[in-house]
């Protein structure tokens, strides 16, 4: 999957202004990988995920699925290609019809696409139920009889019935309790192997994204700030925003193992109605200079396969301005002095 200069805008209710939810994003999703997309609320990560499965139309730019632009396809052909790209949402309840049995919900997508016949779909649905670790007797139950974790498993089974190539996972464990998150994340990893899947994993949770991703992209106000191999982005981030985000993550560690100083960002994410000029992050950036207000930083490859949009990002991870540079000492621990 390839995303080229993607821009998505929404008008405000009175149509006087536009929200630039995604504002010029370029990246590729590689076959078989897990690409983590991390960002705070309002960063455009959910809109980006929806655009990947063509649930929202871009204003400009393209999302190519195996070289095909879905925007030019129509009717049957569109449905056929689009079935390869599925999405699982955050709220396990909202995606299930309370008046349909679990099995009926699971086979519905295949039914709509006209795969097989009723008997084969049911067989396949029961098989998927087992694949996601649910007992067969769940098939005849209704969503309200299931726990949140079980419902999320049903949602996964549901997209698997159409044998997708790519699954976009939008905050799929955010609504679940910590003690059962692990079991769902393990399930995603197992299914990736057995079904040869590619994941785009969208979340605000740094610990989740760093655990499961091969590569990580960091979004802020509709733009990618950084994209690179997971280890590099977590351990040696290039962009001051990623550095601050990682250092803000509260760590459940005893006091003597916790980093002594964190980068505390001032203020909050600005309104996407009026994003700052130049670099989006400059209003909160500890190393911003005059240049940052004037020039939009280029999206450039700073290290091999590791991209960042910051004037001062350098290969060794230090920012060019000496006084404020953030020393990376391994781990996600930082020293802002």
């Amino acid at each position: 999957m390839s995303v080229q200069d993607l821009r998505i805008e929404f008008p405000t209710r009175d149509r006087s202004q536009t929200v630039k939810a995604v504002d010029g994003v370029d990246f590729e999703v590689l076959r078989g990988e897990t690409l983590g997309i991390i960002g705070e609320s309002g960063s455009g990560k959910t809109t980006l995920g929806r655009a990947l499965v063509s649930l929202v139309k871009p204003v400009s730019g393209r999302v190519l699925h195996g070289g095909t632009d879905l925007a030019i396809l129509r009717g049957r052909e569109l449905r056929r290609v689009r079935a390869d790209y599925q999405i699982v949402f955050q709220d396990p309840n909202a995606a299930l019809n309370p008046r349909m049995t679990i099995l009926d919900s699971i086979i519905e997508p295949a039914e709509i696409l006209g795969h097989g016949n009723d008997a084969s779909r049911r067989r396949d649905g029961l098989d998927m139920l087992a694949q996601v670790g649910l007992a067969l007797e769940v098939a005849g139950r209704y969503p309200h009889e299931l726990s949140g974790g079980q419902k999320q498993r049903v949602n996964i089974a549901r997209v698997l019935t159409v044998r997708p190539k790519v699954i976009v996972c939008d905050e799929v464990v955010a609504a679940l309790d910590v003690s059962i998150r692990g079991s769902i994340l393990n399930l995603f990893a197992d299914l990736q192997r057995s079904f040869d899947l590619t994941y785009v994993f969208i979340t605000h949770d740094i610990s989740v994204v760093s655990h499961i991703s091969d590569r990580i992209g960091v979004t802020y106000l509709g733009k990618l700030m950084e994209l690179g191999p997971a280890e590099d982005v977590i351990d040696r981030p290039l962009h001051p925003y990623s550095q601050a985000l990682l250092s803000a993550e509260p760590l459940p560690l005893p006091s003597n193992l916790r980093p002594t100083r964190r980068i505390i960002l001032q203020g909050e994410i600005p309104s996407p109605l009026a994003p700052p000029s130049g670099c989006r992050f400059r209003t909160r950036c500890p190393i911003a200079e005059a240049k940052c207000a004037e020039e939009v930083p280029q999206w450039r490859q700073v290290r091999n396969g590791h991209w960042a949009a910051c004037h001062f990002a350098r290969e060794d991870g230090h920012s060019a301005t000496g006084a404020n540079c953030n020393d990376q000492k391994g781990g996600s621990n930082e020293d802002a002095e």
Partner: peptide, 24 residues
């Protein structure tokens, strides 16, 4: 202990995550 070990940040990257079976 189970709650602590369930935190993804404390497990080796890409490894199996511990979790508490069942539900409350």
């Amino acid at each position: 202990s189970g709650l602590l070990r369930s935190l993804p940040g404390l497990s080796p990257r890409r490894g199996k995550l511990p979790f508490i079976p069942g539900r409350v």
